[in-house]
Amino acid sequence: MKRQLPLILVFVFGTLMVIQYFVPHENSETVKGFLLDWIVIIGIFALALGLWSLVQVSVAKINSRKENWEYPLVTLASLVMMMFFGFTAITEGASLWSYFLAITVFLIALWMFLQGFMGQAANRNMKLLSGLGLLIVFSLLAIFDSSWEFKFYTAEGLTNQMFVHFFDYIMIPLQATMFALLAFFITSASYRAFRARNLLATLLLIAALIVMLRFTPGPWGEYLAKTSAWVMNVPNLAAQRAIVIGIGLGIVATALKVILGIERGYMGKG
């Protein structure tokens, strides 16, 4: 039951989708649409599981007091703050001080709770109680402070100025810079590649050089541009096609093994 039923479900849904591929009728499209919608919805529920894992691991690291234990504090605080921004709307023109006060109280309350639930056995109840007290303070702030309010049913949090600022000036620069690191890494990777000395590495090197220098100006430029176009359109295309066919067969074979229950490594035992 624990293990058989899931495998039967895999077989049923897998076969259903395979058949669906051959049926152009609109009912078949509806079935596919629903299955895909369900998958999306399950994914969101799973996200809660993911966030819980992130919180759990972070708290464990902090409590271990091993090297670098301070940084998960930053992760937790920024996680909670950003979530808070996303679910609240600030009244236009209102001062942000009481908003920040509320966030601070909320953060401390949450921390007390987390410590109470996951911390050491000693004074757990103390922590839970103080967390509860702070949560009451926070609730009072939420009810009586008119400068901000919770919005769970309208996406006003997405336009909350703090949410937008965190996105524009924290997430975007970090993301772009992380991506930009690639410029350095591709340079060091090139060095690594070009140092290798054998026939295969040399082939790779020559092809890379030709394509890399395709924009070179001057008398060699035109020749290099033409050669690089040939490399891209002929040998590159040929090998890409071979890889693509291989991947296609690999995917078909793996999917078939999954549907037939031959491959079940993805499903736990227990």
Binding site: I186, A189, S190, R192, A193, L204, Q240, I243, V244, G246, I247, L249, G250, I251, A253, T254, E263, G265
Partner: peptide, 27 residues
Amino acid sequence: TDEIPQIPFFFVACDYTLIGEELFAAS
């Protein structure tokens, strides 16, 4: 990986790379 554009990078920087279909055969 089966992401063709990324295979070269792994190939250059890793000690061993499974190319495309080899990933599916690995199990």
